[in-house]
Design a binder for these strands. Structure first.
Lengths: 220, 220
DNA sequence: CCCGATATGCACCATAGGGTGTATTTTTGT
DNA sequence: ACAAAAATACACCCTATGGTGCATATCGGG
């Protein structure tokens, strides 16, 4: 991973409605010098007020089930208004939809509450340095999701060459022969050759058709 | 996680071309009583032969870069012929494509080689109990991928008229001016007019761009 | 009743695009 | 080292496309 850690501690806020859990986390995580707890809130609204009032945090440990605004909605709000804040979902629920919704809302990690305290600490720190902590059972669900989505895109192998693939991308981006030639520092006639080869391989005969095929079959 | 572990040890095979790494893993992982090393192979073909010969494994630690069949292709083969085998990719590469390809091929986990030995052990065991071990930096890439695919269809209202919408659909379907005119029983010049109007509204100036915009913004 | 939006149509022009053929240089895989 | 594949390039041809201007007819709402 990263060889060195940044000089200052990570400013961490906790949003968790159960007081015992909240205080427990605050106490335990605060023990580590690399983490500075800047707030522990019982509701997402509390955190938002804090931020609106000028408070600052690097990272938020967010529960999903909360009174008032739930953790996923809160994540969306945070990403929208304070995009530099890293949100980690910390919950006992490993419901597939909740996991995906969290991720789509912008959460950088999804940690289950049964994670051992010191592992939790590691995961929080890893999130601070560009990683995404994911509990193994959660990861399994995410991978299942990807695989499910992966089946949708049919194999679609037209064995395009490297150059042809690059040219294809440019066609999709709407470049003309000339622009394409300049982009690749080749003659317009060559660009054209590549395009015609692509047409043969994809069995089409116009840019419009190529763009459609490329987008629909995920060739780009 | 799971409260109890199954009675017998996990039968683990290692596929890794570098002898030192292979032997190191074999030695270290073999120390734990919950794991039984049933084979360490320098090539994927070696593992396949072993399985064809009646050998049995629960889990495979698979390198990606291998002489002969690479780890991803091998994963595909294993999933196809021995679907009960859990494949974990273990590699130094965190290339986005390789990660996604592995997952789509059926790998249950993607662990980076810089993972500390005891963490590796933990991840292997977690995979044995329905989890999916994913290194944090790898998880980040996967989440990015999900988010990218999660883009909601932005409203995108260009106030196209009825006719223009029909024409747009035909453009996406690759019709030429002439075909389009015939399809709607109008003059080619009229078809063209509609198209030019569409270009103005969508702020583009070629069919290729229109097709892309229409598909990406769900105008059709 | 008039205006604006929609739909229709034609003319003219310059350029981009599609199709075919040929040929040389590089890369790549035995 | 040799053959196949890929990438490069030019010529020629005709059509499709995009851009602009102008014009007519219809319809709905103010």
């Amino acid at each position: 991973m990263k060889p060195e850690m940044s000089g200052r501690a990570v400013a961490l806020a906790i949003v968790e409605d159960e007081k015992n859990v909240r205080e427990g986390l605050k106490y335990f995580l605060g023990l580590d010098s690399r983490i500075r707890i800047t707030g522990a809130f019982g509701t997402a609204e509390g955190l938002v007020s804090y931020l609106e009032g000028g408070g600052s945090v690097d990272m938020v440990l967010m529960d999903i089930h909360l009174p008032g605004m739930d953790g996923i909605a809160a994540t969306r709000v945070l990403q929208d208004r304070w995009p530099n804040v890293t949100v980690l979902i910390l919950t006992i629920f490993e419901d597939q939809d909740a996991i995906l919704d969290s991720i789509k809302a912008g959460a950088k990690g999804y940690i289950l509450k049964n994670t051992k305290p010191d592992a939790l600490l590691e995961q929080i720190l890893s999130a601070a340095y560009e990683g995404s902590p994911i509990s193994p059972t959660v990861a399994r669900r995410i991978l299942d999701e990807i695989r499910r989505g992966a089946r949708v895109s049919k194999a679609a192998d037209y064995s395009l060459t490297l150059r042809e693939t690059e040219v294809l991308r440019d066609i999709v981006n709407g470049l003309t022969y000339r622009e394409l030639a300049e982009h690749h520092h080749i003659a317009g006639s060559t660009a054209k050759k590549h395009i015609l080869h692509i047409y043969q391989k994809l069995n089409v005969n116009s840019k419009a058709e190529v763009v459609r095929k490329a987008l629909e079959e995920g060739l780009v």
